[in-house]
Amino acid sequence: MMTLRVNGYEYEVDAEPDTPLLYVLRDDLKLNAAKYGCGLGQCGACTVMVDGKAVLSCVTPLVLLEGKRVTTLEGLGTVSEPAPIQRAFMEEQAAQCGYCIAGMMMRAQALLQRNPKASDDDIRAELAPHLCRCGTHMRILRAVHRAARLMDTAELSPSDQRGAQ
């Protein structure tokens, strides 16, 4: 039994310490935004944030998460109240099949929290580990720029603040 802090809530999780975070998020906590892609930390679909940094949840076992804060896409915003990064991706229609997008958004969020003025090159380099086989790469780039502008100007909703803690 260990305590896992996800999106501001504490969960008592009954799992072995070598269980990947992704399995606990999806199977036990029913937080399904992070996707299972390769299971080897090579595609980026499972990306979440741990203490504000983008982390591949499929290769992050629970044993590493003692006392750390996990944030998933669900922790950033909701359908009725989307976070800037989610609004930006919707407004740019940046998802095609969408499987990789939750991971892309989480790494972009971590980038913009660290560097609100990220350049095109910064964004490209940061998202390079994320594989996408559809055709919206340019829209994804535009969405991240739009999110940066939204974060700069929009008032943060309470849920955003929780995600960005």
Binding site: T19, V59, T60, P61, L62, V63, L64
Partner: peptide
Amino acid sequence: SEGAAIYAAACATC
């Protein structure tokens, strides 16, 4: 040990 647990969980799988 903590190190052994991390190795088993994060490294040994590959």
